[in-house]
Amino acid sequence: MKLDLVQVNSFRNINELSIVPAENLNVFFGANGSGKSSVLEAIHYLGFARSFRTNTHKNVIQQGSEGFTVFGIVSAKESIYKLGLSRKLDNSCTVSIDGAKTKSAVELVSLLPVQIFTPQSSELIIGSPKLRRKYLDWVLFHVEPGFAKEFAIYRRCLLQLNAILKDKRYSENLNTEQDYWIEQLCLVGERLSSLRTELMSGEFLSFIQYNLREFLPEFIFDFSYYKGWEKDLSLKESIYKNRERDKRTGFVSSGFHKADIRIKINSVAANEVLSRGQLRMLVAAMQIAQAQYLFSKNEKSVVFLLDDVGAELDTDKQQLFINSLINTGSQLFVTAIDKNQLGYLAQYRDKKLFHVEHGQVIEEI
């Protein structure tokens, strides 16, 4: 997947932008606050339908505007897609795919696999399990047909069960309703969990370990997947076992939504062993594995956004990271304050450099 054209309107300090990116490497340089991260943020909307910097969409709308628009032309094998997304101050969202408008962003996101690497990416390791679940689910969303639909069913069942658990009025009807939703949740939850388990025990894990031998050869990593409930019980058995406790707390404590990836070095949690720079390289190895696996399964490449790639990574590690991504067929969008920070750029032939100043993006010739 490659972005052949990117157009942005009324997005943060970018009034109007239209660029034709290089197929491999695109570098945006300029002072802090110039707008280079905003270019990446706009592209991120095409791949996630949301920002990586704020949860409030109206915060990215340029002051004085009614809304923003991001448009991209994507080439994939022999297909070309025209993708657009706009958001208004009233929080309404319109998605356009080849001129057809829809309110759902699922199809848009499925057509353009995007990943982001920022100075905050270490949160994947040191942050909450939710981030590690999202890491796995991004892969399954792009590889497994029907995953998004089943994931939505699971969430709906979980919301219904939690609502029942919070209802302090006991009745036989309420108990019967709870049994129904438990049955539905377990049916889809076991299937979804098996997909994650297979992912973390096969080729995908092999890609992670291969990258780590390149990036952090001084360590031996052990990855394990905790499915979210007792390993000797089925999901239904676990939910019924904890039913009374769940009534007291008001939420389902067992299930697909409680899973986690556990990463250790010599039986010690990786985040307690690694430096900040090493944590970033661990994340880099894991994210590259996403691109490698996606390409191995359906020959889709990833649009990769690297925001401030030089933060806590020395030149050799930066170059190793970028080379590894390019080898997956990824299209890269990289930001830096000064292009001289990336002294290794000369070795790349298929690249474009863009100077960003006060929201204006000018390609260097």
Rank of each mutant, 00 (worst) to 15 (best):
L161A: 01
L161H: 00
L161M: 09
L161Y: 00
N162E: 08
N162Y: 01
A163K: 10
I164C: 11
I164S: 09
I164K: 04
L165Q: 08
L165Y: 13
K166S: 09
K166H: 03
K166Y: 08
D167N: 11
D167L: 06
D167H: 07
K168D: 05
K168P: 04
K168M: 08
K168V: 02
R169D: 02
R169V: 05
Y170H: 08
S171V: 06
E172F: 00
N173R: 15
N173S: 12
N173D: 03
N173M: 08
N173F: 02
L174R: 13
N175S: 12
N175T: 06
N175M: 07
N175E: 04
N175D: 10
T176D: 12
D179R: 06
D179C: 05
Y180G: 04
Y180S: 05
Y180E: 08
W181V: 05
W181Y: 15
I182S: 08
E183A: 14
E183Y: 15
E183I: 01
Q184P: 02
Q184A: 06
Q184I: 04
L185T: 02
L185V: 13
L185F: 13
L185E: 03
L185Q: 13
L185R: 07
C186E: 14
C186P: 06
L187M: 10
L187W: 00
L187C: 11
V188Q: 13
G189P: 12
G189W: 12
G189A: 04
G189E: 03
E190K: 06
E190Q: 12
E190C: 03
E190R: 14
E190Y: 09
E190W: 01
R191P: 00
R191I: 12
S193R: 02
S193L: 03
S193H: 05
S194Y: 10
S194C: 11
L195T: 03
L195H: 07
L195Q: 07
R196Y: 10
R196T: 10
R196M: 07
T197I: 05
T197N: 10
T197D: 04
T197K: 15
T197S: 09
E198A: 13
E198F: 02
L199C: 03
L199R: 06
L199N: 13
L199W: 15
M200K: 12
M200N: 04
S201W: 01
S201H: 13
F204P: 03
L205K: 05
L205E: 07
L205H: 02
L205F: 02
L205W: 04
L205Y: 03
L205M: 03
S206C: 08
S206A: 05
